[in-house]
Every structure is written in C-alpha cells, then in structure tokens.
Design a protein around this nucleic acid. Structure first.
Lengths: 251, 251
DNA sequence: CGCACGTTTGACGAAAGTCAAAACTGGTGG
DNA sequence: CCACCAGTTTTGACTTTCGTCAAACGTGCG
C-alpha cells in the first residue's frame, strides 16, 4: 500500500468524509495536501486570510488568542479527526484565532475555495460540515460548563475525565498529551493553581508524575465534578457516573 | 397586508432565509407556525425530543442548563433573528438545554423533519445553516473571552458594550432588555457581584437606574475591557476602541 | 398601607492570582 | 558517572476578588 492510500485509509474514517461515495472522497483528496509540523510550530495566525482549513491526522494542535498585553487565552486543543479553521471560511474569510502545533503532528490542508464550491454541489458534504460545526458547539458548551464548575480541582477533574474517556475499566493510568502549563492555560487558571488543585485531588485517588496521571476510580472522580455539571447525561464523554438508581453507591 | 404577510416580511430578512428564492421561502413558511409566549414561560426542556427548532421573531429567550443541585448556568440570551435548538437536530435529536421566555415573545416553530429534508435538496438553505452555526461559534468565542476578562467590572463592561452595539455617537442611554439577576446569571457571577461591579463602573461614566443604563463614552469603557480581550478587531460588535494609531488618545 | 419583587449593602471567609524562589526533569558533554 | 543546563513544576507568602448569607432598601401594585 502506498503513502496516499494509507492517508486515505485514515482520513476517510473521519466525520468529514462520512457517507461520501468513494469517488467523491477520491476527487476531494486529490485537492488536499498533507503537511507535517514539528513541535511548537506556527500553523496560522489570527487575522491571516483563511485560504486553507485543516484536518488533524495525528498529533495535537492548539488554537489560541492573544490580547494587547500578550496574554494567551486557549480556544481549543485538537487531535485526530478534528477540523480547524472551518468557521473562518464563512463571512470574512480570515482566521479568528492562531494555531500552533503542540507535538509533532500531521495535518491535511483543505483549500477553502474547493470546500466552498463542493458545499454547493454536494449535499452530503454540506451535511457533514453541519454535523462538525454542531459537534463543535457541543464541545464548547461542555468547555464552558467546565469553566463554571466552581473550584479549580473540579475543573481539573473534568479535564482529566475527558482526557481518559477512551479508557475502560474502573481506573487506570494515561499519559498527558501536553504539558501542565498548556493544560492550565486551557482551563483558564494559573499554572500554580493547577498544581495545587492536582495535589488536592490526591485524596480522591489521583496521582501524577512523569507526565502521567493515574486515576484509581473514574466513577469516584466523576462524582466529584460531574455532579455539579449541568451537561445532559450521555452528552459528555468524560462523565463516568453510575446511572442505575438501584446500584449501590459506595461514596 | 394580512398577518402571514407581515410575519413573512419580518423573517425573510433573517439569516435563515438569506438568498432563498421567494418560492422557496413561501413553501418553507407554510410548514412553519408562529407561537407566542408570555414572560417566564417554558419553551422546551433539556432532554426532550427535538421536534422543533425555533426562530426568534421578537422578545428575548434564555437558554440554560440546570445541574443536580438546581444551579442554573446560562447558555445564551437570544433575540430577533436568532435560532434556537438548531444544534440539537443532528445526532440524537434531543435538546441539550432548556429554553424559557424572558419577556413576552414570538417564535417561529420549524419542524426539524422539514428542515432535515430541505437541507438535502436545498444547498442555499444548507449554506445558510452553516453560516448560522459558524456565527454561533463566533458568539461563543466572544462569550468565553468575556468570561476570561479578569474582574467582574470588565466582564460587565463587555456585556454593556455589546448590548449597546447598535447605538451611534459618543455615548447614550439604553434600556436593559432583561433584569440584572438574569444578566448576572449570564455573566456567571453573583447578583451581588454584578451590583458592586456596576457601582465601580461609575468612575468610568456608567450610570444606571430604573432598568436603564447610561454610558457617557463608549470608547472610554471599551478601553477598560476590550484592551484585555483577545478577540480579533472587527469581530466583536461591542468593541468601540479607536483604531487609528495616529489618533489622540485621551485616556 | 402592606406586600412582593428586584436590587443594594455590609461583613466575613474561601478561593485563586501574583511574584518569586526552590525543586525537579531530561538531555548534554566532559 | 557525574556535573551542568534549560525547561518545567512545585511550594510559600501575600493580596485581591469573589461567593455567601443576611439584612436593608426601594419600587410598583393591589
């Protein structure tokens, strides 16, 4: 299998290509190009003309904004399958935020002109993009709910649960995909505050070290934060509360 | 002019109907129904099946979420031309938040089944919905930037500037479209905190009373909050800073 | 007049930001 | 193998802000 085919195999499983015919996917892919970035590399800047949007194939990308005092506010952290710059293609056609690689990562560059043209003639693609934007809105609602969770340890707990949402079983250890400084920035809190919050979570069975985090009991941690979260059950991947009202609750 | 025509005249200027042919708009409108709500009336609840989405014709609607401890977190306050429940029509088809009227208001109920069918066959409508969702994402980015503005007086200042974005001239007086309790909820702060923040803004030429707010100098207030905001210039309607670098800055 | 509602004020404590120093990490080269 | 370095993380002392509770104030209305 050649390089192009292996890329195709990966990306066609993304929401972007959902329900597209093979011929459609192929003809789109000929217009897209693969771009590799190293750690902490500039991808695009706020205000630049949005000639491309990107689909993350691997690695992590940070979307952020900078104000007059060069304070950074994090918009989103993206990984495999996520799309960046899609919202910029409407109206003005400039990026509303800056993007930078967090790790070494690989992106698929999609020319916005091609995209705009294809929306017109391909209702399946248009439906996919609607789905992607609506999913993005849900994520933002989750993020803003996380912001309002009260104290820092709850916000951190919420992030850890979402980062480990792919894990099965009672508990486990996983690697933080980015440094604590970026995590703190993403949670809108000081790095020192995050550090203190993390040590407070020790009492709830959360240990950390070496860029890894161990959670003894997802459900227990979930009870700490998700109880205070207003997001509808089943809508947040991080939530790990027991649903069964007859079940024994040990805590 | 009859009742239906007057409704049509209003709503066809909304983004939802942008670029639609007259015939298209007419055929859609026959499927939509006008619903009137009184103050503080229930519109739909989180988790309900999303059979309709709504377009606000007049008045204000509050989208919100409630957690286990019945704390309310505000998602959005909508007015004329805004669409609610649109993001619910993808995936599961349940509302992800609850909706309630803030004032007496009039909504246009759009059956989601009709909408889904028309997206398929009408690329102009699909493009309009993409634009609406992308606009919603921008608003959420502004809202979250507002949250991170530091202290409460800046957050309040940001809200006041956005509420008065339609006003021209150096300053002016406008009516708050909702009570201060709802404004505080929307800003994610305590009502008492809002009250104190408002009195601190007195020093910047902001007076309030009788549900009205007077801002002496939009640019001065803007300098207080927007300087710390990372949103791209021209993307936030509330921002009223002077752009001209040669201009005299009095403050 | 008194009642309900929305708003303001005061006193207090808890939480988080700030600044700065100390501790830890991994990688490099002697 | 160890010393050194830069980058990251933790800790400590201090200040500010905000939430909380509760009481007082004001306004409109029956």
């Amino acid at each position: 299998m050649n390089y192009e085919d292996s890329i195709k195999l990966i990306v066609t499983s993304f929401p972007f290509f959902k329900n597209l015919s093979d011929a459609n996917a192929d003809s789109l892919l000929t217009e897209f190009t693969v771009k590799d970035f190293q750690k902490n590399q500039f991808i695009f800047g706020k205000g630049d003309p949005a000639t491309y949007c990107y689909i993350v194939v691997s690695g992590w990308v940070k979307l952020f904004n900078v104000n007059d005092e060069s304070n950074i506010s994090s918009i989103q952290l993206l990984s495999r399958g996520d799309v960046l710059g899609l919202d910029a293609i409407f109206d003005d056609g400039v990026y509303l935020y800056s993007a930078e690689s967090v790790n070494d990562c690989r992106l698929l560059a999609v020319p916005t002109a091609v995209l705009k043209e294809n929306i017109r003639i391909n209702p399946v693609l248009a439906a996919n993009l609607l789905g992607i934007l609506s999913h993005r809105i849900k994520e933002m609602q989750i993020a803003s709910a996380c912001f309002l969770l009260g104290d820092a340890s709850r916000r951190l707990s919420c992030l850890l649960l979402r980062l480990s949402s792919w894990m099965v079983g009672k508990g486990g250890t996983f690697k933080l995909p980015y440094g604590k400084a970026i995590a703190a920035e993403h949670l809108g809190m000081d790095q020192a505050t995050l550090s203190r919050a993390l040590s407070r979570l020790d009492a709830l069975g959360v240990k950390s070290g070496n860029g890894e985090v161990t959670i003894d009991d997802f459900a227990k941690l979930s009870a700490h934060s998700c109880t205070h979260c207003p997001i509808l059950e089943g809508q947040c991947p991080g939530r790990r509360m027991k649903y069964d009202p007859d079940a024994q609750q040990d805590y």
